[in-house]
Every structure is written in structure tokens, then in C-alpha cells.
């Protein structure tokens, strides 16, 4: 089992990197962005008793991390099948 061509191998890898970069940007925004850098601005908004920035720092970022990994696993599975390199 291998890539059909050199171009395929290149395309697979660059799609993988693109997916990774998009997810890493989200990873950065939910934790460092919402939880630290813009925490004061977000704290002006409230959900129930939570200030939004505080919620991201102590709750929201963690939920987002879990979602990110499962999205990555799902999308990579699709990508493997698209290029025929999934495990049998």
C-alpha cells in the first residue's frame, strides 16, 4: 500500500498541513486569544454567572480542545481514504 504517484504524496501531505494549521489557529484563538490576550474585553460579556473570558480560560478552551482532536481524527480518516492510504 502506497501513494499512486509522487504528486499524490505531495498533495496528501500539503492537505494534511493545511488542516493542521487551520486547527492550530483555532487552538490558539480559544486558549491564548480568548483566555489570555483578549480576556478583559471578553469579560465584559457574561453568560449567566460566568464572565466570558474567564469561562474560556477555565472551561471553554478545554471543551474546544476535545472537539479539535476528534475533528482532526475524522478529517484525517477522510483524507487517508481519499488518497487510498488508509490502514486495512
Amino acid at each position: 500500500m502506497a501513494f499512486k504517484s509522487k504528486e499524490d504524496a505531495k498533495a496528501y501531505w500539503s492537505e494534511n498541513i493545511r488542516l493542521m494549521l487551520v486547527l492550530m489557529v483555532i487552538w490558539f484563538v480559544v486558549s491564548f486569544g480568548c483566555g489570555i490576550l483578549f480576556v478583559d474585553e471578553l469579560n465584559a460579556i457574561r453568560i449567566g454567572g460566568y464572565k466570558l473570558g474567564f469561562w474560556f480560560a477555565q472551561q471553554g478552551s478545554i471543551y474546544a480542545f476535545v472537539a479539535l482532536i476528534f475533528v482532526y481524527a475524522k478529517k484525517m480518516g477522510d483524507l487517508d481514504r481519499k488518497y487510498g492510504v488508509e490502514e486495512k
Partner: peptide, 10 residues
């Protein structure tokens, strides 16, 4: 600690 010890898994 909350973000640091979970975000590493991503």
C-alpha cells in the same frame, strides 16, 4: 494549569 495541561494533547 487548566489550559496548559490539556492543550498539550492537541
Amino acid at each position: 494549569f487548566l489550559m496548559g495541561w490539556t492543550g498539550g494533547f492537541v
